[in-house]
Design a protein around this nucleic acid. Structure first.
Length: 423
RNA sequence: GGAUAGUUGGCAGAGUGGUCGAAUGCGCCAGUCUUGAAAACUGGUUUACCGAGAGGUAACGGGGGUUCGAAUCCCUCACUAUCCGCCA
């Protein structure tokens, strides 16, 4: 959610920059500014009314104490009007406040100046391409066939137990999952992120805090009996640790990492996008989260991208880094880098990580602030990134490393898997 | 699931109708003392909104009500703790 004060001060700039998202918000912005003015006017009137009423109440109290019943009763009659008036004003103000919030919920974050123009993922800017794309020759099976051939993942069994998009990992397939999780967590810790194991279900307030609610309600699994949501990413519980918190400036940046399964309903997906491991309802992911001082958040964003790149380097996977264009940028993000690995057998790029700076957009809803010495609390910046999401990494590892002898495990991973080849 | 007790400032914890944004302690910040530190002492220390400022308003889990006046009384919802039941 954008800050009202910023809208008031930088109205034109905001409207201009949101055009990068192919959005014209001038109408909404103007409406908000008008409503805000009305709200302030209403509040002033309300405050004055209440001040008057408070004053009279005090007088009545004094008079009663002095036994001057009659005088007290006289003043009492005066308060009725004030009471009625303040009730009205209160209702009015609440109504206006509600309208303002409704509009603010609909306005996405202001893109960073470096965000390129564009409508779809085809307009994303390729920042960097790295690694070698292997020539597999005749050994060129997609991962879902490899998974079957080597008994690593059983998709049908998952369908039986739960439904499509809930695979069962078996034997070395399961071991590979665990190896990757440990590898990613260890690497994150080396990079200074503290590990946390958060709850996998969150309440409504947390959903609102990071912006999954109200707009993405349909994407989360909802346990209606207890009104809890299965997390779509560890970002939700980990960032919400800092909901309604004022941290001291010298604690920044705060760096957390966590492994969790992620649950997504993925309503509306179909076709080749959901084949095999490409899109699941439940998948594993290691997430990195930072709470940062505004002055250093972009520097830290770059470092997070570097961290994810280092993981892909160590896994010896060919990848590229994209700077998302305005049309592809997430609602809450100011700047996002996607990292994609190349799947040789599928001949396509697979998104494995998304690293974003939300600036104050999340912090505003979360009421996450920092305080410098002697200063008023200021909104912090939040950042997060996948480091990494497992399924597509597994897909690429299986496909790109297949040989006539089996699937080779990259060196960096062998100490975690305990085997160097899957036969 | 049943019963009971709770929810107050960064934390602990007092306050049961007016002078309470709220005692006290701890913590934190500044100062005095000290070669330095600790201790001791002194002072300061919630947040949001409105206002150029003086100042004003709101908030004692959320919402509603009674009252001239509510942290305090009533209703309602949420959450937490403890005990019982069930159970990894």
């Amino acid at each position: 959610m954008l800050e009202l004060q910023r809208i008031r001060e930088q109205k034109d700039d905001i409207i201009e920059r949101l055009k990068i998202r192919n959005l014209d918000v001038s109408e909404q912005i103007n409406k908000v500014i008008d409503l805000d003015e009305l709200r302030r006017k209403t509040q002033r009137e309300l405050d004055d009314t209440l001040a008057e009423s408070n004053k009279l109440s005090k007088e009545i109290g004094m008079l009663f104490k002095q036994g001057k019943q009659e005088e007290a009763n006289q003043i009492k009659s005066k308060t009725a009007d004030l009471k009625e008036r303040s009730k009205q004003l209160k209702e009015e103000e609440a109504k206006i406040q509600e309208q303002i919030k409704e509009i603010l919920y609909q306005i996405p974050n202001v893109p960073h100046p470096s965000v390129p123009k564009g409508n779809t993922d085809e307009d994303n800017e390729v920042v960097l391409t790295a690694g070698e794309i292997p020539d597999l020759g005749e050994y060129n099976l997609p991962h879902w066939e490899l998974a079957k051939k080597y008994n690593l993942i059983d998709f049908e069994l998952g369908v039986k137990i739960t439904g499509a998009g809930f695979p069962v990992y078996t034997g070395k397939g399961a071991r590979l999952q665990r190896a990757l999780i440990n590898f990613f967590i260890d690497e994150a810790e080396k990079a200074g992120f503290q590990e946390v194991i958060p709850p996998l279900l969150v309440n409504e307030a947390s959903g609102y805090g990071t912006g999954q609610l109200p707009d993405k309600e349909g994407q989360m699994y909802h346990c209606t009996v207890d009104n809890l949501y299965l997390i779509p990413t560890a970002e939700v519980p980990i960032t919400n640790i800092y909901r309604d918190v004022i941290v001291s400036e010298n604690e920044l940046p705060i760096k957390k990492t966590g492994y969790t399964p992620c649950f997504r309903r993925e309503a509306g997906s179909y076709g080749k996008d959901v084949r095999g491991l490409n899109r699941l309802h439940q998948f594993d992911k290691v997430e990195i989260v930072q709470i940062a001082h505004p002055s250093q958040s972009y520097e830290l964003l770059d470092k997070m991208v570097e961290h994810v790149k280092s993981l892909l380097d160590k896994l010896e996977l060919p990848y590229r880094v994209l700077r998302l264009c305005g049309g592809d940028l997430g609602f809450t993000s100011a700047l996002t880098f996607d990292l994609e690995v190349f799947s040789v057998a599928q001949e396509r790029w697979l998104e494995v990580s998304s690293v974003s700076n939300f600036e104050t957009f999340q912090a505003n809803r979360l009421k996450l602030r920092y305080r410098g010495k002697g200063n008023k609390p200021q909104l912090a910046h939040t950042l997060n990134g996948s480091a990494l999401a497992l399924p597509r990494i597994v897909a690429a590892l299986l496909e790109n490393n297949q040989t006539k002898d089996g699937i080779k495990i990259p060196d960096a991973l062998v100490e975690y898997t305990g085997f160097s080849i899957i036969k």
